[in-house]
Structure formats: structure tokens, C-alpha cells
Design a protein around this nucleic acid. Structure first.
Length: 114
DNA sequence: TAGCTGACGAAAA
DNA sequence: TTTTTCGCCAGCT
């Protein structure tokens, strides 16, 4: 059964985020690009916001902006929770920014061969 | 109903 | 080189 990618855009975002390995992070643009809507990077972030309505636990803490900044930390249970979660996975977070972000960056378009 | 906002990114100046 | 502006499109007021 072929789902409707157009309407399941949010769902696709959740899956990609869920595919992010432990101790790795990705960006909104990378996900958008992977989905073919690189121009709609904002929609990816919006999907994260909608993830609150979603039942599946989406590791949104592994998704940061292109600079590696925890832009969405404010949307978590606690603004520091996102940093704690990332540090808990072995990542180094300094002032809401992921250190060595490029090293921990996980690009679905590069790692996942569709 | 119509308009504004928003967890971003890239291009232009 | 850095800063500013525009585009994306769905959800909310």
C-alpha cells in the first residue's frame, strides 16, 4: 500500500529522525533535502512541532539547525533537556551548540541509499 | 475568510 | 567576509 507522501510529509520526517543513530545528529535542511523539499526546511521544523501530536516518540533532540545549534530546545519539556539528552548520547554541547557537529552530523541522503 | 507566525536555509548585497 | 532579505507551506488566531 503506497502511502501518500504529500500528506505523509510529517510522517516521513518522523521516520528519518527516528533513523538517526545513537550519538548522531542531523539537520532540518538535510531531512528536507532527503525528502526532496530542501526549500521547505521550515516545514521539517514544523513537523517536529507537530510531532507533539504524534504518538511515536520522535528523537527531536537529535535534530538541530545547520549551525548545530539547539534551536528547538525551547520546545522540549525543559530548555536544558535537549542538551542533557545529547550529552547523554556522548555528544558535547556548549552553550546550546553541538561541538564537533560536523563530525556527528548524520546525513540521511548520504547514509541511506534509497 | 484572510493574514501572521514559525524548531531553517540559501542567495544576494 | 558578514549581514540582510526572501522563500517554503502548514497550522493557528
Amino acid at each position: 500500500m503506497k502511502a501518500k507522501p504529500e500528506t505523509d510529509f510529517f510522517y516521513m520526517v518522523y521516520e528519518v529522525v527516528r533513523l538517526v543513530p545513537y550519538g548522531r545528529v542531523t539537520t532540518y535542511g538535510a531531512i528536507a533535502k532527503y525528502l526532496g523539499v530542501k526549500g521547505s526546511s521550515r516545514m521539517v521544523g514544523w513537523a517536529m512541532n507537530a510531532s507533539h501530536s504524534h504518538h511515536s516518540p520522535v528523537p527531536a533532540h537529535r535534530v538541530v539547525n545547520r549551525e548545530g545549534v539547539l534551536t528547538g530546545k525551547n520546545h522540549f519539556s525543559s530548555p536544558t533537556m535537549m542538551q542533557e539528552l545529547l550529552e547523554s548520547e556522548g555528544l558535547r554541547v556548549k552553550g546550546d551548540k553541538v561541538q564537533d557537529f560536523k563530525k556527528f552530523f548524520w546525513d540521511p541522503a548520504e547514509e541511506i541509499h534509497l
